[in-house]
Design a protein around this nucleic acid. Structure first.
Lengths: 149, 149
DNA sequence: GTACATTAAATGTATGTACATATATTTGCA
DNA sequence: TGCAAATATATGTACATACATTTAATGTAC
């Protein structure tokens, strides 16, 4: 659907303003769609992202710093997201003996099992991005990279 | 910058997954940039969006329902955002006599004055979207609309 | 005209974001 | 060695999101 109709704003100042709003809106749209897919698993998007990073490290532990470094949103609060995951027994956290400032975060078997169940719904598959052809996806990547230059 | 370098993930499964992550990441990037621009004015992005809608209506009032309808993110909580704006005296809120369930929300002179000061920084001008040519912005709009089909 | 459904808005709760600050530990340098 | 700076994480606060529930007013069917 055209962005004009989605937000009921008939006119934009120019293509740039329109593209800007469109980008924010589409991102929100995809995030909501994904959150809906995740709901049955009782895991939020940021929690899922942390779990994925931990699986990537497994069986090595990750520190909170490493998680922050790899997260999409650098400014979010990894400590508290790990709190939630720990409460669900999807990760463990223990002080690292080598450097007692840092904490070793490890995904549990239960966490790995959950991710296994969720595999196949990642990457927005079937949500909307696959409405594009592969060429168009490549085009989109080029445009987005240019925006962040 | 290429998305691979931004999030230190070397390989994506395919162009779709990459485009998906890229879209979410770029949206976050733009929102953070805009939040930084807004900070001196002590207004958050959703608060600003509500003010813009109210200016569009001025001098007619808007109901909360109308605000929800026009907001980019439909599921957010317009009532509480209006609370914050009311506390800053940027809007007024009073029960509508015709239908006492509804509330007339009006932008104040102070609110209009604030928007006037902020005009010119909207639409991501100078933030990144203008790294594109006008043709590229049009292309981007087409791709994004297709994602939400 | 009373009862029930619908609508508009507000409120409650859990989660996350953004940013400042606190606390503990380690590092580095005089 | 001793002490300040840097680092790793946690915590506090304000704001927003997501979703369920509540409250009040209106509409509708009988």
């Amino acid at each position: 659907m055209k962005i004009e109709d989605e937000i009921k704003q008939s006119a934009f100042k120019n293509e740039y303003q329109k593209a800007y709003i469109n980008l924010l809106f589409t991102s929100g749209y995809l995030q909501q769609a994904q959150a809906a897919l995740f709901k049955p698993f009782s895991v939020t998007l940021p929690q899922y992202n942390i779990l994925r990073i931990l699986r990537g490290q497994h069986p090595k532990p990750a520190t909170i710093s490493l998680l922050i470094d790899r997260m999409l949103d650098k400014t979010s609060n990894a400590s508290r997201i790990v709190d939630k995951l720990e409460a669900k027994e999807l990760v463990t956290r223990k002080q690292c003996p080598a450097d007692r400032r840092t904490v070793d975060v490890l995904i549990t078997d239960k966490g790995l099992e959950l991710l296994k169940q969720m595999d196949g719904m990642e990457g927005g598959k079937g949500i909307g991005i696959t409405n594009l052809t592969e060429d168009e996806a490549t085009q989109l990547n080029t445009l987005l990279d240019k925006i962040r230059d």
